[in-house]
C-alpha cells in the first residue's frame, strides 16, 4: 500500500495472558473516515492506543505514512507523535484537574516549545472553532460540563494540526446536539486538512452516517 496512511499491520496485543488483538490489520488513508465497531472487550480501544503510538504491539507494527514506527510513547520522535491525535471517551479522565481549559488546550504546544504568546493565539482560535467561550477557558475541569470539557479535548487534539485523528467513543457521553457539533467540527477539520479519522463506536447508526467504511473487530 502506498500513499499517506496510518496503518496497523498484523498487530497483536495482550494484557498479561489475556490476548485482546490477534494479528489485526487496519488502514486509515488520508482524508478517509474509518469506523471501528465491535463488542466490549474486543480490543477497539487497545487498537486505538496502538495507532496513537501509546502502546507497543506484542507483534506486528504500526506504520505512519509508509514509515514503520518502532518503540512507543517517549521513544517515538515528537514530530511523529504529534501527527496522530487521540480523543478519549471520558474528557474528565483525559484532562489534568489542576489546569484551566486554556492551559489544557495549549499544553501540547507548550510541551513542544511553542512560545506562550503564539500558543495563546492558537488556543483562542481553536476555542472559537469548537465553541468554547472565553469565560469557560479560565475555568478548571470540575467547573464545566462533560460536553464543554470534551470540546476542550477536541481543541487540544487539533492543536498540532494532526494528520490523523482517533476518536475512541469520543461522543458517547455527550448529548445529541453537542454530539452533532463535535462531529461537524471534526468533519470540517478533515475536509480542510484532508485528515484521516478513525471513529470507534458501539452505535451502528452513528458509524453508518459518519464513516466511509466500517471495520468490525468481533
Amino acid at each position: 500500500m502506498t500513499g499517506r496512511a496510518l496503518a496497523a499491520c498484523q498487530v497483536s496485543a495482550s494484557y498479561g495472558s489475556q490476548r485482546v488483538l490477534d494479528r489485526v490489520d487496519l488502514h486509515i488513508a488520508a482524508g478517509e473516515t474509518v469506523g471501528l465497531s465491535g463488542p466490549s472487550g474486543s480490543g477497539k480501544s487497545t487498537l486505538a492506543r496502538l495507532l496513537a503510538l501509546l502502546h507497543r504491539p506484542d507483534s506486528g507494527h504500526v506504520s505512519l505514512d509508509g514509515a514503520a514506527v518502532t518503540g512507543t510513547r517517549h521513544q517515538v520522535p515528537v514530530a511523529m507523535r504529534t501527527r496522530v491525535a487521540i480523543l478519549f471517551q471520558s474528557p474528565r479522565a483525559a484532562t489534568d484537574p489542576r489546569l484551566t481549559l486554556a492551559e489544557i488546550i495549549a499544553e501540547p504546544l507548550r510541551a513542544t516549545g511553542t512560545p506562550a504568546e503564539q500558543a495563546r493565539e492558537r488556543t483562542a482560535e481553536l476555542a472559537d472553532t469548537v465553541g468554547l467561550t472565553t469565560d469557560l477557558l479560565t475555568r478548571r475541569p470540575h467547573a464545566v460540563s462533560d460536553g464543554q470539557l470534551q470540546r476542550a479535548c477536541l481543541a487540544r487534539a487539533l492543536v498540532h494540526r494532526p494528520a490523523y485523528l482517533l476518536c475512541d467513543e469520543a461522543t458517547a457521553m455527550l448529548d445529541a446536539s453537542t454530539q452533532a457539533h463535535v462531529a461537524a467540527v471534526i468533519g470540517e477539520y478533515q475536509r480542510r486538512h484532508s485528515a484521516g479519522v478513525l471513529v470507534i463506536s458501539h452505535d451502528a447508526a452513528l458509524l453508518a452516517r459518519w464513516a466511509d467504511r466500517v471495520v468490525d473487530l468481533s
Binding site: 503510538l53 501509546l54 515528537v78 507523535r81 487521540i86 483525559a94 501540547p108 510541551a111 487540544r156
Partner: peptide, 26 residues
C-alpha cells in the same frame, strides 16, 4: 496510567515535562 498522562504524551510532552507538569504537582 491515567488517560490525561496519555493525552500529554500523545500531545508531544517528553518525560521531564510529564513529570514536572503533570505528575509532581499532584
Amino acid at each position: 496510567h491515567r488517560p490525561f498522562i496519555d493525552a500529554a504524551v500523545s500531545g508531544g510532552a517528553g518525560r521531564m515535562r510529564v513529570l514536572t507538569r503533570h505528575l509532581l504537582p499532584h
